[in-house]
């Protein structure tokens, strides 16, 4: 007989849309986003909390979707990489990664971008040290980080010049 899973009601917003679901108690947010909602932009890169690929924003704070139980997100606002572009236009941070070559294989990029988004929302004008500290939980095997830091810096500059802090 198939194992009966314990289930919980999960009502939250994902990228601004209300999402009402019944989820297994043991379902991880990363699997909820990827498998249930089909939002595969959020990546899973390690077996728990070490790489930052799965970083999403929960009530504006960057958190690991791979260490968060979906059932704990009741009433929360979740934002993933899919929420950033507007009408097919890249967000400032995405544009920064594109223009400054902040992505190579791209696997870490969704997590990096979401961590940067969380950082710029609380600190719109970070110096290099603050950018490094803000992205310290995210690992990139390709770029060597310099280009990523430049990308975030350029996004912050652009937002400042256009007067549109996040």
């Amino acid at each position: 007989m198939a194992e009966v899973k314990n289930k919980t009601n999960l009502s939250c917003t994902v990228n601004g849309r209300v999402s009402d679901n019944i989820v297994s108690d043991s379902l991880l947010l990363a699997d909820f986003l990827r498998e249930t909602l089909g939002l595969t932009g959020t990546k899973i890169g390690c077996d728990g909390g070490e790489c930052g690929c799965c970083t999403v924003l929960i009530d504006n704070a960057p958190q690991h979707a791979c260490l968060t139980l979906a059932a704990k997100c009741n009433g929360k606002a979740i934002e993933t990489i899919e929420s950033l572009s507007e009408e097919s236009r890249l967000s400032a941070i995405q544009r920064g990664f594109n223009e400054k070559l902040g992505a190579q294989c791209g696997f870490c990029t969704p997590g990096m971008v979401m961590a940067a988004e969380g950082l710029l929302r609380t600190n719109p004008d970070p110096n290099e040290q603050e950018i490094r500290a803000g992205l310290a939980a995210n690992i990139c095997r390709c770029t060597g980080y310099v280009k990523i830091i430049e990308a975030v810096q350029s996004a912050a500059d652009e937002l400042k010049m256009s007067g549109q802090a996040l």
Partner: peptide, 9 residues
């Protein structure tokens, strides 16, 4: 402790 993301929660 760990990284900045872990410290958030």
């Amino acid at each position: 402790v760990a990284g900045p993301t872990h410290q958030q929660y």
